[in-house]
Structure formats: structure tokens, C-alpha cells
């Protein structure tokens, strides 16, 4: 513990990141550049999220990390352990008990409450990048609200697949102003982005960008009048807890093509099972 400053980063760096976070909260959806630091993990493993978490954690916080909804994957366990060791904060897997939740690719099923902070790991913060590779141009497009190109991407989807096939990192418009990439969460989670009681912070380490959604922000998923946005999921109940309202992972369970669908949010699934709910595949 004595070898590290609280939560690994030095205080100057945390101040710098907090300033970026505050600016992000003041301009919801706007990508704030920040001087991303080298972290003791490779890019792509959540360095942006880790820096944001480090900047917002206090000794009294309870920390939770999920990776694709699960608390027990390598990535989640490593980051949780990292802050246990460098900040000594309490950790939990229970969504409602956590004050800071770092996530990769999911929003917890359980409704978050005021006072909580949800920190997203973001690989590519720029939603316009796929069609306009010039950063100078995309920044201008954001500043001038020229977002026609975003619809070109959706148009291409429909023309190729007959429907909007984008199923994750589905672009949204924040408070009628900035178009934002919600990080690679499934579009099933998009409706949860808006009007959320918790603070949502997005950190992209390699790309050196932070953006944010303050509580109760209006977030609208882009769509066409004749192809409206739809939050989709696999059309099955959870095999373990029987939930019909949660996002599911498909698991291949044998060599004969057998498969089952289970909640991707492990905490949600376990809580339901403890409460006595049972799915058809539960032991």
C-alpha cells in the first residue's frame, strides 16, 4: 500500500482527469481530450475506464467491476484486484451495493440509483470514425452538428441487411446535441442510457478522450421514421433464473449443438436464483 499513491495515479493526474470529467458532465456527450497515462495493463484492457475510476474513487467507495456483465472474468477480476491493492477500497459484486461500477460492454440490469457512478471502458469514442477517418473533420462535424453521415451508416445497414443490423455501439444523440458512441454495449442497453439516476462516465485510454452523461440526461438512439430503433435480445428466457427481461449470452454446452441462454449480468441472475427463480436448465 505504501508504494502507491491512493488509487495508483498521482494527485496531479487525478485533478487533470477530474477536470476533464467535469467538463464532460457540463457538455453531455462531448468528447473531452485528456492526457491519458501509461497504466500497468495494455491498451484495450480498459485503461481509459481505470483512469476514470482512479480519479473518482474515494476511500469510502465500494467498487464493482463487470466485463460483459460478469463479475468473474479475468479482466473484471484483475481490475477489481488492482484497486483493492492500490486504493484499499471495499469491493462487491452486488450492483445495488456498489458506489462506483466500472463496466465493459454492459449496463447492469438492475436500475441504478442516485449517488452511483457507472464508468465505461471505451475502445473507439468517435462514432463518425467509420465513415470519416479525418479527426479534424469529425471534430468540425460535431461542432457544427453535421450528423447526416451517421444516418448514412444506418442507411447502409438497411440497404445491405434489410434492417438496422448494428447491434452494439449503437449511436445515440444526447440532449438533442451531440451524437455519441455509447461504447460497445448491446443496443438492448441503449434505453437505459437515458434518464438514468446514476452518473455515467466514459473513458477511452488509447484515444485519450473522456465523455459523460450527468443524471437524468435525455439520450435518443438514432433511427429512421420507417425503421425505428428496436432494443433487441435473444428471444428466450434465462436458462438459469428464468428471467425474460434480461440480456442473454448464448452458451454452447456440448459437441452436439446443445446450447443454453443465460443472463449476461451474473449478479442479476444470481440474485434471482437466490430469490427462488428457476430456469429450465437450472440444476
Amino acid at each position: 500500500m505504501t508504494e502507491y499513491n491512493f488509487a495508483y495515479l498521482d494527485e496531479q493526474t487525478k485533478r487533470m482527469i477530474r477536470r476533464a470529467i467535469l467538463k464532460g458532465l457540463a457538455i453531455p456527450g462531448y468528447q473531452v481530450p485528456f492526457a491519458s497515462r501509461e497504466m500497468p495493463m495494455p491498451y484495450g484492457w480498459g485503461t481509459g475506464g481505470v483512469q476514470v475510476s482512479a480519479a473518482v474513487l474515494t476511500p469510502k467507495d465500494t467498487f464493482k467491476v463487470i466485463d460483459q456483465g460478469a463479475d468473474d472474468t479475468t479482466n473484471a477480476v484483475s481490475i477489481r484486484t488492482f484497486f483493492q491493492r492500490t486504493a484499499g477500497v471495499a469491493t462487491t459484486t452486488a450492483t445495488s451495493d456498489a458506489t462506483v461500477i466500472q463496466t465493459r460492454h454492459r449496463i447492469p440490469e438492475e436500475r441504478l440509483h442516485e449517488g452511483q457512478i457507472l464508468v465505461y471502458q471505451v475502445p473507439i469514442p468517435e462514432p463518425l470514425r467509420f465513415l470519416e477517418p479525418r479527426e479534424s473533420e469529425t471534430r468540425k462535424m460535431h461542432s457544427l452538428e453535421e450528423y447526416g453521415l451517421m444516418h448514412v451508416k444506418l442507411y447502409e445497414d438497411i440497404s445491405r441487411h434489410g434492417h438496422i443490423a448494428t447491434s452494439y455501439a449503437y449511436p445515440v444523440k444526447v440532449e438533442g446535441r451531440y451524437v455519441m458512441d455509447p461504447s460497445p454495449i448491446p443496443k438492448f442497453d441503449n434505453p437505459k442510457l437515458g434518464d438514468m439516476a446514476a452518473i455515467q462516465l466514459f473513458g477511452a485510454g488509447r484515444e485519450q478522450r473522456i465523455y459523460a452523461l450527468p443524471p437524468y440526461t435525455q439520450v435518443v438512439s438514432l433511427d429512421f421514421e420507417d425503421h425505428p430503433f428496436e432494443a433487441s435480445k435473444a428471444d428466450h428466457p434465462c436458462g438459469m433464473c428464468g428471467a425474460t427481461d434480461s440480456y442473454l449470452d448464448e452458451l454452447i454446452i456440448d459437441d452436439a449443438g446443445g446450447r443454453m441462454f443465460v443472463c449476461s449480468d451474473t449478479d442479476y441472475c444470481e440474485a434471482r436464483q437466490s430469490a427462488g427463480h428457476k430456469g429450465k436448465d437450472a440444476a
Partner: peptide, 24 residues
């Protein structure tokens, strides 16, 4: 990298057209 239809439709979408069928 965008289809012919998307190329022609871009300016329409840029001025706010949001009906896929009409744009196409």
C-alpha cells in the same frame, strides 16, 4: 466505402431527411 444509394442519399440525410424509403 458507401453504396451508390448511400452516396446520393447523404445530402438528403444531411438536411434532415429521416425516412429510409423516401431517401432510397
Amino acid at each position: 466505402g458507401v453504396s451508390a444509394g448511400g452516396n446520393v442519399g447523404e445530402r438528403l440525410m444531411a438536411v434532415g431527411e429521416r425516412h429510409y424509403g423516401d431517401i432510397r
